[in-house]
């Protein structure tokens, strides 16, 4: 296991290094400068600004300087927010995004598992059909459409929850639902299919024959075994929620990271582009590693190292 981990971490670092390199050079291909008032500056002024920020140096030198900073943990200073270190920009805005993402995953998984399980137990009844319809709706309605509708009806018309802004838990409910319904629907559909399979397997028949209660059969045997493949879905969900929440963050005026990323690309804010890209990539590789490790632990059929215990 230890050897395996070292190997995986080495690959992770290699991946991050490649991401940093490719992003850096792609970014440098973008036309224009990172200065907001570029339109009104003369070429001489631009030249002086470039000297101040070291942007007049050859790209490979800028790249080495960046890598050196990265190793030291220095992500540079943002151009959009003058004097603001990128690390501060990210750390002050990752909280709300992370909280929402986490809440949305938990909400989606828990409700999704319940709905999927209920559907599977009541296979081919009206309950099953309704849960399937719910899943299809959840998958087909984009999160931002749901966000607008929730905001208008629940926030403005009914006045039950805040329309927008970021304050306490009540502010997170609508965006969590908007973000969580997609994963919820997918989980429900997935669990239903898995559970229908599991419920018809031999060991369930045996459990029933042993006289276990219906709850015991479903909870201890069927659900447990259906959950294992779900772990593979968590990785993609996390990524989707990290990158896909930008529009929802805008709609609910949440001080998150999603929109910063898009804005940094549009304004050529080089240090922020790199910072957020690295953050996303690091998050993704860590999640993938965790998924693989958890998978190995909970499913004995899968061995990370191929060695017998």
């Amino acid at each position: 296991m230890g050897k395996y981990l070292v190997k995986r971490i080495f690959y992770m670092l290699l991946t991050l290094f490649l991401v940093a390199t490719i992003t850096f050079f792609l970014m440098k291909l973008m036309p224009g400068s990172p200065y907001a008032n570029q339109q009104k500056m003369t070429p001489e002024q631009l030249q002086i600004m470039n000297e101040q920020y070291g942007l007049n140096k050859p790209v490979w030198q800028q790249y080495l300087i960046y890598l050196l900073g990265l190793v030291k943990g220095d992500l540079g200073t943002s151009f959009q927010y003058s004097n603001q270190p990128v690390s501060y920009l990210i750390s002050s805005r990752i909280g709300p995004s992370g909280q929402l993402g986490l809440q949305a995953i938990i909400f989606g998984l828990v409700i999704g598992i319940v709905i999927g399980a209920i559907g599977a137990i009541n296979k081919n009844t009206w309950i099953d059909t309704s849960s399937t319809i719910l899943s299809i709706l959840g998958i087909s309605i984009p999160s931002f459409v749901l966000a607008v509708l929730l905001q208008y009806y629940v926030g403005l018309k009914l006045g039950w929850l805040p329309i927008a802004d970021w304050g306490g838990f009540s502010y997170t409910i609508l965006p969590t639902i908007a973000l969580g319904v997609g994963p919820l629907a997918e989980t429900a559909r997935f669990i239903r299919t898995e559970m229908v399979d599991v419920l018809s397997s031999d060991y369930i028949e045996l459990a029933k024959a042993k006289g276990l209660t219906k709850f015991g059969v479903v909870f201890h045997h069927a659900l447990r075994n259906s959950l294992i493949p779900l772990v593979t879905l968590i990785g993609p969900y996390t990524v989707a929620l990290m990158t896909g929440s930008m529009v929802v963050e805008n709609i609910f005026s949440i001080p998150g990271i999603g929109e910063q990323f898009v804005k940094s690309i549009l304004t050529n804010d080089f240090p922020t582009i790199m910072g957020v890209t690295m953050l996303y990539s690091a998050g993704l590789v860590v999640v993938i590693l965790l998924t693989d490790i958890i998978y190995g632990i909970i499913d004995p059929r899968i061995r990370l190292t191929g060695r017998r215990n």
């Binding site: 607008v148 905001q151 006045g159 329309i163 927008a164 805008n250 709609i251 005026s253 929109e259």
Partner: peptide, 16 residues
């Protein structure tokens, strides 16, 4: 001051 980048949101806030 409240930043809302989505005009529909700020209009909803205005109405409330």
């Amino acid at each position: 001051f409240q930043v809302s980048k989505d005009n529909t949101t700020s209009y909803n806030l205005y109405q409330s």
